[in-house]
Design a protein around this nucleic acid. Structure first.
Lengths: 239, 239
DNA sequence: GCGGCTTTGTGCGCAACCGTACAATCCGCA
DNA sequence: TGCGGATTGTACGGTTGCGCACAAAGCCGC
């Protein structure tokens, strides 16, 4: 499990911040405010004015699209490779999606104006980094759109667990079935059955509120192509 | 139906170009090359280097995510309110998605470097416009991801027809069922049945290779919320 | 007007998944 | 240690959509 320590802005674990030249990071640090990312918090509610962007140091955040029936389908997953606030880089003041914290962690936040100013600096390395992440996230969302339309629950579930494991950097995920079912837009009972089969097959352990990936290879076979496609796209686009 | 005329760069029908100040449009015009958008052409094949961005003047383009089984699920729809090439604005050289022309039309293309240079100009109005469209498209894709996961064929079909009708600016759409089924990731037979019911209900006309929206109000009721949500988001974000 | 091709309409058995319900199990806490 | 609430396992009938197959209808060239 990730150990929660107070984030240190001079040694960021966030991959985007870590990729910045020392001088640029130093200038940026004045604007970075360490924050906890508590479980289940909503970072940026639908259509609310975005006041801050968040660089994730640890934990797992999902980007969900709320629907009018109260459901909220996940469209993207973000860990320390990314940040919350891509709309800020595109000049938008709000977003139709929400960012929900799925595994608690920590990060840095920065006021939108400060981020925009920093990204607008001459020869800024920050801007291309954040735009590259925006592109990677966009690729993930597009793949998810196709995946949601065509792939079955079991495959999507395997994809989700692998993807979450990568971003949380842990094989052990403290998750309830109910929660997974909401993310995937399917019944809780269906998730339970699918997880049961994975457990049978020796791919995972599955106890109350806790799923452990046991056989990574097997899980990749059980998952749809979408896991691999998105992973490769992230490797291509990000540091 | 849209009359195909040679696009005139000084009076662009494309909403992004049309929103530019006269002086900026004039400078840009030197780089704009009128092009036909022939039915079924693929503007930007998967993972290919993106050499040009395309401003749509007329016609309808869909952004599809190819899957390994040969299927290609639509994740977004673009008409003259937008352009093809958002990855260029995000610093990417290629994209995992493809742009397919679904209704023939015309547009202007511009070399990626020329576009990047123009967008990098001081006080450029072009850059924020293109980024706003990128945000709008992103919102559309996220909504589509949720929609694909949770909504039924009939609703999604109604959404698609309305959305396509808006962008093509015509109630009459020259489409085959086979084609719609690929976009929606469902069986052709299922589309035929769903269209049959809409016809029964007096919402559409449906003859060989041609669908006409007869009752717009009724169709909006038959469509899922996603149609309205995306339309409103576009109105908010774009000129 | 006819033959051939494309497109649309329809049927059938089957799989995935739904909504609902309820029992079994686990965990924290008194 | 036992209770109560939360979580997980399981069941059942019903709906959506699948894969397949084939008939009906429309269009085009001859």
């Amino acid at each position: 499990m990730t150990v929660l320590t107070r984030p240190d802005p001079s040694q960021p674990r966030n991959r985007l911040l870590a990729a910045l030249p020392a001088a640029e990071l130093k200038r940026l640090r004045a604007h970075l405010e360490p924050v906890e990312l508590p479980l289940r918090a909503i970072i940026s509610p639908r259509d609310a004015i975005i006041t801050h962007a968040y660089f994730v140091e640890s934990g797992l955040v999902s980007l969900v699209q709320p629907l009018s029936d109260g459901a909220a389908v996940e469209v993207g997953l973000i860990g320390r490779e990314g940040f919350i606030g891509t709309p800020v880089m595109l000049g938008a003041r709000s977003s139709s999606a929400e960012a929900n914290i799925q595994l608690k962690g920590s990060g840095f936040r920065i006021a939108t104006e400060a981020l925009q100013d920093a990204a607008a600096e001459k020869n800024s390395r920050l801007r291309p980094l954040l735009l590259s992440f925006t592109q990677a996230l966009h690729a993930q969302v597009m793949q998810t759109a196709a995946c949601n339309g065509r792939h079955e629950l079991a495959q999507r579930l395997a994809r989700w667990l692998l993807s979450a494991g990568d971003r949380a950097e842990s094989h052990e995920l403290p998750l309830r079935h109910e929660f997974l079912s909401m993310m995937l837009g399917r019944r809780r009972a269906g998730v339970t059955v699918a997880l049961g089969k994975m457990k049978q097959a020796g791919l995972i352990e599955n106890s109350l509120g806790r799923i452990v990936i046991r056989d990574r290879r097997g899980m990749e076979k059980a998952a749809c192509e979408c896991y691999r496609v998105v992973r490769d796209e992230y490797r291509r686009l990000l540091p």
